[in-house]
Amino acid sequence: MSVKKLFLLVPALAVSLLAGAQNVSDLIISEVMPVPDSTSLVDDFGVRNGWVELFNTSQGTVNIGGCYLTDDRSDLRKSMISTLDRSTRLGPRQSVVFYASGDQSNGTFYTSFKLRPGTTIYLVSNDGRTLVDSLSVPSGIPAGKSIAKFAYDNKAVVFSECKLSDPTPKAYNAGGKAESGAQRLAREDPYGFTLTLVSVSVVFCALLILWWLFAAMFQSANKKHRAALTAQNQKKAQAPAPKGDVNGEIAAAIAMALESGSEDEVAAAIGLAMEQWLSDTVHDNESFVVTIRRDSQSMWNNKALNFRNYQR
């Protein structure tokens, strides 16, 4: 794939991800408290109203502006959530409370209807037709109690149970002790084949993508290298047998010369020359800058002088 296609693909992916992040179907009505008591939540005007809590179950931000709340199945557009307020953008795993004051002019987070036991509350998508979620309020619900959906899987945020509870406005409705991933897998995948298959695929995909990205990004460098290799092979095939290769004896002689205490600069020069001569497997771009740090130890810090002589 060419680099051009890559550049087209990346923005397309980003756009699709962003589009997914705006999906109102990830919203749920997580809790409803229809009849307030003296301990209930007070709104911005100091009044205790019933309230409806919405929760964003997704990992992305969802804008609830333009969606509707209603308690009447035949009037789905009863109470529209303002589109003009930026605070209607609900972050991942965030909740928001709407006060059922019956007067929407109180603010963005107020509904045009009051809550009554025995009704069902609906959340309607911004098209005004699609039902996103609903929650039925039992008729005999005591004052100060709420009806809430609880998540027993904190990771997947699957709200599996709906029951009466003490109100927890704007808080995550964790249902007691959550099931850990290991417990869930012990139940769903006791032999481990699914996890193995998925994990192996993910590892391969991650590294495959890395390979593909690098192969695509440095295509020209790879091509150049292949061409150089071919040219080198052809040259080698045509050229006469090489003379004067450094054989074992020569290498040993050079090593002995280095060992015999030549000057640092001489040693560095021989070292560099040998590196360039012998390095047929070099693959790094070396700077070939040799820094010589002379041993400047004094009597005080010279390790060798401070060693105790070994008694033989």
Binding site: A221, N222, K224, H225, H283, D284, N285
Partner: peptide, 10 residues
């Protein structure tokens, strides 16, 4: 085959 040289940028 001999690996190619790798630039600092890479």
């Amino acid at each position: 085959p001999k690996p190619r040289q790798v630039s600092q940028k890479e």
